[in-house]
Amino acid sequence: MDPTELTDEQLAAAAARESSDGPAFVALVDRFRQRVWRICFRLLGNEQDSNDAAQEVFVRLFFGRDKFAGRSKYSTWVHGVAVRTCLTIRRGRGRRQRHESVLADEGWESRQPGRAAAEQGLSLDLMKMLEILDEEDRALLILKYAEGHDYEELAEIFQLSVSACKMRISRAREKLQHRFQDQPSQAGEHHG
């Protein structure tokens, strides 16, 4: 059967029956490559770590392909694996290294002319502002606002209750508001 005609869940079941990375698993990688990469890139902020994380996500999906129980959508399950993998990598990388990478990005930014530099600046400002949050809150905000997940999906991805998700997002927003309310939008300055 043509893998493109199957739903995610049917493909996952077919991949679980394969003994190696056969056509069903390859089709799953093809289907989720962009989405997993986007989550990894948004959570980790650079291509090298995102590449490493996205590959690790698919390796974990391969070895855990018979563990999908079908209680949620397969895509939500994949996003959960991606988030947990990225959080593990970020925790391992440590804050000091993240700070160095931001400084390195600033150096790169100063070498970019015009609009590209402004966009890069916007991205850096947003990401730097999010750095004041703890890892999970930061990931919750990114998945909610950048990836457009609703609270039910977030609850499944982060294995929290819906109310806990709402509360954590609300607190994270308050924290950002409190921390940056006195400062003019740095992102706006870059655009101006």
């Binding site: 990469w37 590449n51 966009e119 606002y145 927003r173 308050e174 950002l176 940056f180 939008s185 992102a187």
Partner: peptide, 19 residues
């Protein structure tokens, strides 16, 4: 302010995965 700022997260460009 926080809401405006968070809405802009979706506008950030994401690099393409390597070939």
């Amino acid at each position: 302010m926080a809401d405006d700022f968070l809405q802009r997260l979706a506008e950030l460009e994401v690099a393409a995965p390597p070939a």
